[in-house]
Amino acid sequence: MNLEHALAAAEPELTPLAVVDEERMEANLAAMARIAASAAVKLRPHAKTHKSRYVAGRQLEHGAIGLTCATLREAEVFADAGVEDLLIAHPPVGEPKRRRLAELAGRVRRLAVSIDQVELADGLPDGVEVLWEVDSGMHRMGTAPGVASADAVLELVGRVGPARVRGLLTHGGHAYKAETQEARRRAADEEAQALLETAMLLRRRGFESRTLSVGSTPTADSAGREKGITELRPGTYVYGDANQITLGSQRLEDSALAVIATVVSVHPDRVVVDAGSKSLSSDLRVTRMEGLGIVLGHPSLRLERLSEEHGVLAGEGLDRLGIGRRLAIVPTHACTCVNLQSELLFFSATGTRWRSVDAQGWRAARNPAQRDLLDA
């Protein structure tokens, strides 16, 4: 991030304030597009990071085939924006979600969901395809690679037919626990092999997976290059964050998102800024990270703790920070930080512009008819 430009862009605004270096963001989009192109795989970014119509449009301009969404709200917002190919990587459980999913299916060209329970396929709206989630090591959702997943997929095919089963999906989220670069690469290999092993068993039993989809910014470069993988679903890469920097999957200079905060209290052992847990993410996904963010231009400072509206800094150089000083903090986790904002201030060499975080929340309705569905 261009620190000087970030602070200048934020100068007339209240803090805390989330800002985006648009030129840096564009470089990140181009870099991931090159990774996908060089591996000859499709790019389906996870839009939960930005939740923005504008950024989604930029990803499509950079060659993405469609978007991955975490919520129905996100999918509805992007369908409104004209995105025709959507994957909701979350199981649609419950009648209200099924009804909203059916309405959404009538408005886009391609729509799929991921599941790891066969019974969830019963009653799926017409036109909605399915990807089966395989657990490649995160132990959140998904069935074990190999026989367990192959058996489940074949049962799924028996219920909905082979045309509606698109293939296999996994998320190598265990890469965030990697202590070394070798461990991160090993997680990427486990992510890819979980799908390839399962797909091979399915092929032997008469079912061909059209899609083998992996997703994780820390593993995208390695997992996507495994022969047979067809799709990448990274999300955080668009902005970067302190988790990625600590992991080594992105560099500090790749950071496109920061929260500008103002020093409001100074003490010999600490400095307090006006950005707390309601503006900065406290999501520490990387166990070896020190602090709750990276203070740009001040490598000796640590963001030690967050209250709702306060961030407490410690470390060397506190005496050089006076009341009113503005600091730019790279959050631990871009996705959760962005979800706390209603707008982001984008800046570039040509000026600044406010852009909405369009798909924030879960329950907001597109129109009165959908409000009836929500309240049913």
Score class of each variant (00 low, 15 high):
Ala27Cys: 08
Leu212Asn: 03
Ala187Gln: 15
Leu104Met: 00
Ala223Gln: 03
Glu190Leu: 12
Glu343Gln: 12
Arg100Pro: 02
Val41Met: 04
Met32Asn: 11
Glu191His: 09
Ala349Arg: 13
Arg110Glu: 11
Ala223Met: 05
Ala36Phe: 15
Leu327Asn: 13
Ala6Val: 05
Leu303Met: 07
Ala64Trp: 07
Arg270Cys: 10
Asp116Cys: 10
Leu306Ile: 02
Arg270Tyr: 15
Leu17Thr: 03
Gly324Lys: 02
Lys177Gly: 15
Thr180Ile: 09
Gly351Cys: 12
Pro268Phe: 10
Gln370Ile: 06
Ala56Glu: 05
Ala27Ser: 13
Ser281Glu: 01
Ala105Arg: 10
Ala18Leu: 06
Val77Ala: 07
Val130Ala: 08
Gly215Asp: 02
Arg164Cys: 14
Asn2Met: 00
Val128Pro: 01
Leu321Ala: 01
Ser38Trp: 01
Asn339His: 12
Ile229Ala: 00
Leu344Gln: 08
Ser249Glu: 02
Gly315Asn: 06
Gly240Met: 04
Ser52Phe: 06
Ser356Arg: 07
Leu195Tyr: 04
Asp274Thr: 03
Ala349Leu: 12
Val19Trp: 03
Gly215Ala: 08
Gly94Lys: 14
Glu129Lys: 11
Gly142Ile: 05
Ala18Gln: 06
Ala33Met: 10
Arg355Trp: 12
Gly63Trp: 11
Val238Glu: 08
Tyr54Leu: 15
Leu373Ala: 11
Lys177Met: 15
Ala163Gln: 15
Ala47Arg: 06
Ser307Asn: 11
Thr198Lys: 04
Ala112Phe: 06
Val153Asp: 02
His310Val: 05
Ser38Met: 09
Val271Ile: 09
Pro45Phe: 12
Leu124Phe: 12
Leu29Asp: 10
Glu95Ser: 13
Arg98Trp: 07
Lys278Asp: 10
Leu101Tyr: 03
Lys278Phe: 12
Ala56Trp: 13
Val160Asp: 08
Asn28Met: 07
Pro234Ala: 09
Pro331Val: 03
Ser114Tyr: 01
Gly248Asp: 02
Lys51Thr: 13
Val118Glu: 13
Val266Ser: 07
Arg251Tyr: 05
Pro92Tyr: 00
Val312Glu: 13
Ala220Leu: 08
Leu303Asp: 01
Val286Ile: 13
Ala275Trp: 06
Leu321Pro: 00
Val41Cys: 08
Val238Met: 14
Ala18Tyr: 08
Leu296Val: 04
Gln181Arg: 14
Asp283Phe: 05
Ile245Met: 09
Asp274Pro: 06
Ser348Glu: 10
Thr336Trp: 04
His5Pro: 02
Gly206Ile: 03
Leu72Gln: 03
Asn243Glu: 04
Gly224Arg: 08
Gly293Asn: 02
Leu131Ser: 06
Val55Asn: 04
Ile294Arg: 04
Ser222Ile: 14
Ala37Ser: 13
Pro218Lys: 03
Ile115Asp: 04
Gln59Arg: 13
Gln193Cys: 10
Pro162Arg: 15
Glu226Met: 11
Gln341Pro: 09
